[in-house]
Amino acid sequence: MTAQAELEREETETMTVREAIREALREELARDEDVYIMGEDVGAFGGVLEVTGDLYEEFGEERVRDTPIAEAGYVGAATGAAATGTRPVIELMFSDFIGVSMEQIMNQMAKMRYMFGGKTEIPVTVRATEGGGMGAASQHSGTVHAWISHFPGLKAVAPGTAAAAKGLTKAAIRSNDPVFVFENKMIYEQQGDVPTDEDYIVPIGEAAVEREGEDVTVVATQRLVGESLDVADRLAGDVSVEVIDPRSLYPLDTETIAESLRKTGRMVVADETPLSYGTHAEIITRAQEEAFFSLDAPIQRVGTPDTHMPFSTPLEQEVLPDGEGVENAIRRIT
């Protein structure tokens, strides 16, 4: 059953990805007093990407807490807080700033549970925005989720629809492990049907078939989910395209992807991370491990060539993966 068909069985409301994330935060703040938000300008200002919005007015400064511009410090503090009985939700603003806080992420947050023999839990959520497309240049446009997905001890999710944005954010906050939620900044205004049930969650580790097809499987993430669905519409009648949103990058729902590949025999992986040593390689490796003898053509990759995100529009458009790139990739193998 497609994700859309599943949604049709729920009570839904149409809202943007931004509103869906805010709704998830609101519901979880209301549900659990131990949950609070921390980050730069998340309070009265409402968040630089306007995600936290009016939550400060509703929940106050203790629960929607502005921090100094000190990513290592507050990521570390969130880790220490999570180990001692509270459930912080960090907004790390631009995912590029993960670099500033990487020590606390890789050596503390990711390792504490394992190093301590499983005797502590680190229920911390880190939200960060990714992606090019708005001329934010190299230090505010990165897509770095491969780093976090690569590093043992961290979970990573990356919604491509409004429903997934809400359901994954709630699942992240309810998880007793560190979970990173990667929000693509170009889809905050994208609309979709979102379940209103306060217990609606998207389980971490479950992919969604967003559209069923017979000829080729497109595994697409974040902004590229919507663009791949548009491509599927355009090619309908010519090529039948199945579109899968993994939603969760780690753990990854390998089986849903492999099952699709067994049916179609052809696959394109579309993700905005740089191509070398990354998300595409992992998804493709797993797909061929599980469905090698179903392959009818080499699996194709659509991603950012190995450059940083340039500022000027024609340069940015050149390197930014998009629907056209997905379509070209499909054409190469069908």
């Binding site: 410090g73 570390g76 220490g80 807080a81 180990a83 001692t84 509270t86 050596n107 503390q108 190093m115």
Partner: peptide, 25 residues
Amino acid sequence: MLGANGIVGAGPPLATGAALSIDYQ
């Protein structure tokens, strides 16, 4: 005891976080 730590300087942010939990609750 929130852990010995192999990274020099990594403990203080964790302690600040523990203090935040204490303060919050």
